[in-house]
Design a protein around this nucleic acid. Structure first.
Lengths: 202, 202
DNA sequence: GCGATAAGGAACGCAAAGTATCTAAAGGCT
DNA sequence: AGCCTTTAGATACTTTGCGTTCCTTATCGC
């Protein structure tokens, strides 16, 4: 029985490395992730990794991009607050400590590596299925006459994710239900009403 | 002329180390700050530092606490938007890249060191002269009848700093005037109006 | 002045980054 | 099929910096 020592190349190898990096990230986090461990786990060696990515941050970002979660359907609870709570809650659950530890770590390196900063900024600020979900929720509230018609600036559409990430990173703990409630009731709902009112008056 | 080789101890030495750490932080940033460099700069040695702090993060946090900027008088431009822009602008200028690089770095370590997480969380969420300034500005706007009377939840008082920090850290660049304007006009002013309106209706 | 305390200095072991070098396997080409 | 270019895989090396240990000696309290 001959052991096929198939030596992987190209895309196949790349996928193996990114998967290894992702697994490693989930198990030990960004700070403890070493190139050696990723190489070992992928069954390859460090030089192979360095030929493809500039360093830890770029590797991890690439692994992250390959593992973006699929966005579920926008919630539909029948009320604006209900929909927002559900959405914020989903974001909070997704923003687990692994994710934030990674973002913090990558941020730290982004200050020294402009390419990393660019990738990260793009990832964090670009329109995502999530900002679409925000628009959908607000549109539904408007069509129910729960809210006057309102145009959402991009910054406002981004805000839910920004708020949760900020909360989660500064507290270093999972975001509690109460915090989610406070973000929705003290910040986001009032903001939507205020925006609508100011736009109405011109 | 005898050279007094005064060997410092206690509080005096501690101050010297913290000052050295702060200078080092300003010159090379958190990621490149090494204990060896701090020791050398303070004219002491590593063990002396490790006898006082648990590691880089704790040392840097201590240095930061010793160098909190004095809060200037709350602005008084005569309008809510004007005051807020001035305040947001001040925060943005203070949240320079050094500061954010440090916060990001310390955050990265906070996930592994609960004491660090506690110190950082306290520092970032506690009432500060800054949250007081927010209240003052809003109170003045209310007394000018520019805004209905409104009660600010703590989260809303914290929000300016959170928004700027988030912006500054995710973009990795100084926060521009336009961004400040957008945060004030698209987010904070509408939020205040919305809060006031919702509180009015009960 | 004496003894406890703690600073200063040097060196160590360790871990991990990033690099260099060599080999041999895979794939393309004729 | 056989050659040739590419590049994976393995190993080892240099460098850097952390955190620690050990020892000497200055300073302080009494």
């Amino acid at each position: 029985m001959t052991v096929t020592k198939s030596r992987r190349r190209g895309a196949e190898l790349e996928r193996a490395i990114l998967d290894a990096a992702w697994d490693e990230l989930r198990e030990v986090g960004y700070a403890r992730l070493t190139m050696e461990a990723v190489a070992a786990r992928a069954g390859t060696s460090k030089p192979v990794i360095y030929r493809r990515w500039g360093g830890r941050a770029e590797l991890v970002l690439a692994a992250w991009f390959r593992n973006l979660p699929a966005e579920p359907e926008p919630p539909d609870t029948g009320t604006l607050r209900g929909d927002l709570r559900t959405l914020f809650g989903r974001i909070a659950r997704r923003a687990d400590s692994m994710m934030n530890e990674m973002v913090a770590g990558v941020m730290g390196e982004a200050f020294r590596h402009p390419e990393v900063a660019a990738l990260l900024g793009e990832r964090l600020t670009n329109p995502t299925p999530l900002t679409e979900a925000v628009s959908t929720i607000v549109d539904k509230a408007v069509s129910r006459a729960e809210l006057p018609p309102v145009e959402l600036p991009h910054r406002v559409r981004r805000l839910p994710l920004d708020l949760i990430r900020n909360e989660s990173m500064t507290c270093g703990a999972p975001v509690s239900e109460e915090t989610v409630a406070s973000l929705v009731d003290d910040v986001y709902v009032p903001l939507l009403h205020g925006l609508a009112a100011l736009q109405e008056d011109g």
